Amino acid sequence: MQGEKVISALIGLTGAVANNGKTEHTDQVVREAVLQLSDSSREAELVEKIHTEKHRIAPDCATCTHPCGNTSDYEIEKLRQAEKSVQDKKEEMLLAMKQYLSESETVPETVYRGIAYLGYDLEPESYEEIITELQMSCR
């Protein structure tokens, strides 16, 4: 999957958002990161932006001595170990997010939920719900 480090960081950012809310910059950081997932030359820069935003949202998490894992970057190896049908649906969901964000300046809750879903091995139908919501919003 392209942009694995960015995806890993985005999953951690969505955990911070779920627990603490967004700043005025969060949507733009998420939008830029999702749209640039395939640009490997920007991967380190995007991860840095995501981490900076995550630390704005949840500053104590950066120095926590007993991290709970809610805002940690996702262990991308878990993504690689998922069943092929789940990996395919996650790829399809990422494409739907990119398509939506390429046509809209707003970042809806559906995108944040989709990013969070990337961190779980759910039934393929769960990913399909996000895909459908995004596709319906593009029309």
Results as ranks from 00 to 15, higher is better:
92 E>R: 11
103 E>L: 02
109 E>A: 13
98 K>M: 04
114 G>L: 04
133 E>A: 05
75 E>K: 04
80 R>N: 11
128 E>L: 03
134 L>E: 11
112 Y>P: 09
123 E>C: 08
80 R>T: 10
101 L>N: 13
111 V>N: 04
103 E>I: 06
122 L>S: 07
121 D>M: 06
130 I>Q: 02
82 A>Q: 13
109 E>R: 14
106 T>Q: 10
110 T>D: 05
119 G>K: 05
76 I>H: 06
80 R>H: 08
134 L>N: 08
106 T>C: 05
97 M>Q: 02
117 Y>G: 01
96 A>P: 13
75 E>W: 01
133 E>I: 03
78 K>V: 00
134 L>Y: 13
114 G>M: 03
124 P>G: 06
121 D>A: 10
113 R>L: 10
108 P>I: 15
93 M>C: 12
125 E>W: 02
89 K>H: 09
90 K>W: 02
108 P>H: 15
99 Q>I: 03
110 T>W: 05
123 E>D: 14
134 L>P: 12
83 E>Y: 08
100 Y>I: 06
136 M>C: 07
118 L>K: 00
75 E>Y: 02
107 V>Q: 04
101 L>G: 11
75 E>G: 01
119 G>I: 06
129 E>T: 02
134 L>I: 08
100 Y>D: 03
74 Y>P: 05
104 S>R: 00
119 G>W: 10
92 E>H: 12
123 E>H: 12
112 Y>D: 10
124 P>Q: 12
125 E>I: 03
75 E>T: 02
124 P>T: 13
94 L>Y: 15
131 I>C: 11
105 E>T: 11
102 S>D: 14
78 K>C: 07
116 A>T: 15
118 L>G: 00
96 A>S: 07
97 M>C: 05
122 L>G: 06
123 E>F: 12
133 E>K: 03
135 Q>F: 07
115 I>K: 01
84 K>L: 03
74 Y>L: 14
84 K>R: 02
81 Q>P: 06
114 G>N: 10
95 L>M: 14
86 V>I: 15
105 E>V: 09
84 K>P: 01
126 S>R: 11
130 I>E: 00
112 Y>W: 13
94 L>R: 14
103 E>C: 08
114 G>T: 04
118 L>H: 01
92 E>N: 15
81 Q>M: 02
123 E>Y: 12
113 R>D: 10
113 R>Y: 06
91 E>I: 08
123 E>V: 12
102 S>N: 14
131 I>T: 13
132 T>F: 03
121 D>W: 03
122 L>C: 09
102 S>G: 13
130 I>C: 01
113 R>Q: 06
116 A>L: 12
87 Q>N: 13
78 K>P: 08
95 L>F: 15
136 M>D: 09
86 V>C: 07
93 M>Q: 12
107 V>G: 07
79 L>G: 10
110 T>P: 04
135 Q>W: 05
121 D>I: 08
128 E>C: 01
111 V>G: 04
135 Q>V: 10
93 M>F: 11
78 K>Y: 07
132 T>R: 04
101 L>S: 11
